[in-house]
């Protein structure tokens, strides 16, 4: 890193600014902020297309096999989903608040808002963990690994005949199972469910990591009313994660 640091500090003899947070190729803080903001919006744009692929798969399989999605949603716990929605919305509020605090030079408020955001993110992941572990424990996996137990099929009130009901001893007629998998069925629903929520979960984890870094810089006192770009950009990313969930919740949990 030495050489890079050397370059950026020793960039040119007659430095017309001295703030190390302002890169040498920008005119002023506003210029740097606007450019960074444009960059993060472009990044969010590509995130939309990235998730767009999964929404495409979702739309096609749901559009052509709505019954599969109705059955699939029965496995999901709407209450946990709703609670998670509220948790994530609250974290969006605190994220937006952190930007306000930074703009107002309110270091304490900034730290508090970031801590709350990270806390909510962990809360969200905790609830997701409860949901995932219940399903995986009962054999509700994705695709070819989908082997639900008798208990969970009964608990979810799955319409008889949609997937083969395991016998008392847990065994499944292999022929019936093969036939059930030939066309899109519950196993497809759970492939989509796990891909969408899983990818969203990875984005939450990434958000936590970035926020931990922002927290460290906030404690160090890097941010003030003139320089708060990283707080704003991270918040924008976090809102996008929220935005995706705003759609995932009704699309996966709220199906009649």
């Amino acid at each position: 890193m030495d050489a890079a640091a050397h370059e950026s500090h020793d960039a040119h003899g007659h430095d017309h600014h001295h703030d190390p947070r302002l890169a040498h190729h920008f005119e002023d803080h506003q210029h740097q902020f606007d450019t960074g903001k444009l960059g993060i919006w472009l990044f969010l744009g590509q995130e939309l297309l990235f998730f767009g692929g999964l929404f495409c798969a979702y739309s096609i399989y749901r559009g052509l096999h709505p019954e599969v999605f109705e059955e699939g949603a029965k496995f999901l716990n709407t209450n946990l989903g709703a609670v998670n929605t509220v948790v994530l919305l609250f974290s969006s509020l605190t994220a937006a608040w952190s930007v306000r605090a930074a703009q107002l030079n309110n270091k304490k408020g900034l730290i508090l808002a970031i801590v709350l955001t990270i806390g909510c993110a962990f809360g969200f992941l905790g609830i997701k963990y409860v949901e995932y572990s219940h399903k995986l424990h009962e054999g509700v996996f994705w695709g070819q690994s989908f082997h639900p137990t008798r208990e969970i099929l009964e608990e979810a009130h799955v319409t008889p005949g949609v997937v083969p009901m395991p016998a008392e001893d847990g065994s499944v007629d292999p022929k019936a199972e093969k036939i059930a998998m030939l066309k899109p069925n519950l196993h497809t629903f759970f492939s989509i469910y796990f891909m969408m929520t899983g990818l969203h979960g990875i984005h939450v984890i990434a958000g936590i990591l970035v926020y931990l870094w922002i927290l460290r810089r906030a404690i160090r006192g890097d941010f003030n009313s003139e320089y708060y770009g990283p707080v704003d950009f991270t918040a924008l990313y976090w809102h996008l994660v929220d935005l995706v969930w705003i759609y995932l919740f009704p699309l996966l949990y709220l199906i009649h």
Partner: peptide
């Protein structure tokens, strides 16, 4: 798909 057989 390759690793876990998603069926998409």
């Amino acid at each position: 798909e390759r690793a876990f057989g998603l069926g998409i």
